[in-house]
Nucleic acid binder design. Structure first.
Lengths: 191, 191
DNA sequence: GAGTATCGATACCTGAAGTCGCGAAACTCT
DNA sequence: AGAGTTTCGCGACTTCAGGTATCGATACTC
């Protein structure tokens, strides 16, 4: 244990502007949409130089993913029964995606990932995997079933967002909950 | 009925290269991905000038939408029972999206539409509405239920495509069919 | 033959992602 | 105190893609 206390590396420390940049990202995406929310505009909204943003995130997509991670936070995973747990998780995701800027940012980075394998890797590893593992643990379901669950919930919400420009209304979220609950009611085991 | 036979408008008629451009679009998108499939490259692959493409389609998104319309064609709507009809429709969409280039193009134009209201209008009106109306008629379901059906099927398939880079495996398509069928089994009427 | 709309080719404009280099500031270590 | 290191803001720069405009040539209709 010779170097167990890195204390602080030499050089000027980074200013604590990550939270400000995340807030500026969401508000800029919310106002202008994903494509017009350029890194330059986001940086200006945060009161920060563009080079500062690129010093911390390698690409616009990586910035968005980190911003989404910050916006979502850890999954609540509340509920005593499997049904309650799934229901609350779905409603939690729906509510988060409905927050101003979050859905637009999510759909935007998602579509960028289609033709960008590096970004797809970031999206899958940094954003999807933590929630996937937490759900596997909480639900006791195998990986492929949880991935299917995520595909259904997030896919439906993003498709509605992309087609209409707005979040899904509550009645349809309820229908989504009922449909998913019925499919997963029989517990782990089937394909 | 004075001008009931427009016959052919004056000027040089357009050459019949639409089909060639569509094929070039899909193959280019398949090879390079949506973002790198520039209009210039697509035109070159079709043996056509870029200006010719822009003379026929106002934007890249409109070209992609027309290309998808051509690739999908009319919905089969086969099956005697409601369950068979839904099942065959879902498998038909899944198979189409799995065709080389189609899924990438779909996901790409979809994500572009998120921050482009004009493109969203084109996507919704030209691509979604025809199939929505046909499904409303064939299933006897109200608009909001059919929209939910489309959200589920297309949303799930595109989310899988965007996250993994490849189409959904057959076992998961089967799970999707079962889940949707169970939800819509009770027929029209509930929310 | 006059008029019109297409064709290919090419040059151009705009905007956005990402890079680079600069001098200044804020730290740590000696 | 001073050397070394890293960040900061600022701005110029490169690259690339969507889209526009202009050109002479071509293929039609009237």
């Amino acid at each position: 244990m010779t170097s167990n206390t890195p204390a602080r590396p030499p050089g000027r420390p980074r200013t604590g502007v990550n939270a400000v940049v995340f807030a500026a990202t969401l508000s800029t995406v919310h106002e202008l949409g994903y494509a017009r929310a350029t890194v330059e505009r986001i940086a200006a909204a945060a009161g920060v130089a563009k080079s500062t943003v690129y010093r911390r995130w390698p690409s616009k997509g990586a910035l968005i993913v980190d911003c989404l991670l910050d916006a979502f936070g850890p999954a609540p995973l509340e509920g005593t029964s499997r049904a309650e747990l799934m229901s609350s998780t779905i409603r939690w995701i729906a509510a988060k995606i409905a927050e101003p800027g979050v859905g637009d940012a999510f759909a935007g980075v998602f579509s960028d990932a289609v033709s960008d394998p590096a970004l797809r890797e970031i999206l899958s590893t940094r954003l999807q995997d933590p929630y996937r593992l937490a759900l596997q643990d909480a639900l006791g379901e195998p990986e492929n079933r949880v991935l299917f669950f995520i595909d259904v919930v997030v896919g439906v919400l993003l498709h509605r967002m992309g087609m209409t420009g707005g979040p899904m209304v509550d009645a349809d979220v309820t229908a989504l909950v009922e449909m998913v609950l019925a499919h997963f009611a029989d517990g782990p085991g089937q394909a």
